[in-house]
Design a protein around this nucleic acid. Structure first.
Lengths: 301, 301
DNA sequence: TATCGGTCTTTTATTATTTAATACAATCGC
DNA sequence: GCGATTGTATTAAATAATAAAAGACCGATA
């Protein structure tokens, strides 16, 4: 009925492994040193040392913490199943929702989802609250959460927002000096695209990852925390849709590669109009793909 | 040791007020009807009716809920002090932080703040979690929250992001037909600006609100949930800084009014370059003001 | 004199509990 | 019989209580 003692158990076991490698008669370092090493508080360290002394592995005497006997397998404690952190939850949640096992408009059952995902309910609550900033979920008047996205409108607005950010990045990028790192990265990406094109018949599937890297590279020239945060969610959503929209995948990806190559070429020309045009064309295609795959999935539901 | 019964108490008192206006011998409507009326579940209604029957105000007999006696003042229950909701919390929190009672880098004490703000700790946790999407706070590795903003960099990046969004809005706006509502609003705003200018000596303080309305109007032409969400936080932060940066306030505001008027004029010309230029100039001034007021406040701390 | 360990307080994460919502079954009046 | 109403049971959410961990303080010690 309170917080778990995973930290204690893990620290205990790690401490045992350290003891195992030490000779009998030697002494462990100071509590502070151990705490620093294990990245836990001294309170935990003291708990661990107490327990080690109780089971006779070490002898506490003033500042001496002498190893008394060899460590046995039975000394180790079993680690309680650790819950997912809020970051790990993000991926699982999107995986679950974006595959549209869940249609928009669903009322989310916090208790059930928390159980399924092996997270504490309050962790899920926090996560949903943070998602509500993006309008993906909404808090209902008297308890409960409503899944709003991913509707067609959501996809359109997300794509539009993405375009605004990326076009801004493009305008920055073309003014960067020739020795800026981004140009080298773009050249490398160009090669990657060409290589993939040559083996597109079989490996068209690899485009998803390449696409993510490409857009990330373009946007990386803007050093802004808000852009970065949004980029994260944008790439997450686009990436997921890539994964499960299999229709025309080879054709679509091949066309997208050509658009990317045009895009890179246009950037390199340093011509604002041309670069913007190439970017816009690709972003429009991308938006269309997203909307279409949403609709296709909707039909199944 | 569990959730509060505010809902029950409030429903009970509201029910009593209804009973007070009814004559003895009359019967209350069905549980479902009452639930609909009070906007609570039937469970609560049944609880209320039970209690009313216990205290002899009504007599329950099958489907009859007959009023038995007049309602006395002592019948009413005292309402427990209700906690702030997460929305109300947002304003209080920003008020607290942006006035820089709290320097960047502070570790936030959830328990303490929750008590000070009269919210449940989990409400605060959720709120902080949602703020972490904007990088204003960060979750620390082993518990606790770290206040990151509002540093100079934060102000710069926020301003930059604001510019990106607003310039996009400007590009949309100038292509809107002459009969679009926004032109009327801009004309009205222009008048408001002129009027304020004529009484600037005394009423320069009113500019803050006008500024907010103006930028809201410009951005309103973009119908995008992500833009809207960000607009909320941007206007919040800019607005707060307006409130407490008193240095040169009259001069600054007067200059800003002129920039706004130029801005409106430029929009009306429908000339992209001119509109962008006017917008950029004002946004740059605005960014500078924000950074400067941050620094000024920093000196005091 | 700087580090160390004992003690205590503060703070956080999680569970247990209470209230509220809702689904379903039974009943009543028309 | 049928729709509305109530009775009952299950489920879910909000919050208080609580165990674990972090950290502050201080005298002791090498």
């Amino acid at each position: 009925m309170a917080r778990t003692n995973v930290r204690f158990v893990q620290s205990f076991n790690r401490m045992l492994r350290t003891c195992k490698d030490m000779e009998i008669g030697h002494s462990l370092p100071s509590e502070n040193a151990i705490a620093r090493d294990l990245q836990v508080s001294r309170t935990v360290v003291r708990g661990v040392l107490d327990r080690l002394s109780q089971s006779g592995v070490i002898l506490l005497n003033g500042r001496e913490k002498t190893i008394q006997r060899a460590v046995k397998t039975s000394d180790y404690m079993e680690e309680p199943s650790t819950l997912l952190s809020i970051d790990e939850l993000e991926n699982r949640f999107f995986d679950w929702v974006l595959r549209m096992d869940v249609p928009p408009g669903t009322v989310l059952n916090v208790a059930q989802i928390a159980k399924d995902f092996h997270v504490a309910t309050h962790t899920l609550q926090e996560f949903l609250s943070s998602l509500s900033r993006y309008g993906i979920v909404k808090r209902r008047a008297r308890g409960g959460w409503l899944l709003e996205g991913f509707t067609e409108n959501f996809a359109l607005e997300l794509s539009e927002f993405r375009s605004v950010l990326e076009l801004n990045a493009v305008r920055h990028l073309i003014h960067l000096p020739a020795d800026h790192a981004v140009w080298g990265k773009l050249a490398a990406l160009e090669q990657d695209h060409m290589r993939l094109l040559s083996r597109i018949e079989t490996d068209y599937h690899d485009f998803s990852k390449l696409d993510e890297t490409f857009h990330f590279t373009v946007n990386s020239v803007v050093d802004n925390r808000f852009v970065r945060e949004f980029q994260k969610i944008i790439s997450l959503i686009f990436h997921y849709h890539f994964q499960w929209n299999k229709e025309d995948e080879r054709t679509r990806n091949e066309a997208a590669i050509h658009e990317h190559l045009d895009y890179i070429e246009a950037l390199r020309s340093r011509d604002v109009m041309r670069a913007e045009k190439a970017a816009k064309r690709h972003l429009a295609t991308s938006a269309q793909t997203l909307v279409r795959s949403l609709k296709a999935h909707d039909h199944l539901a």
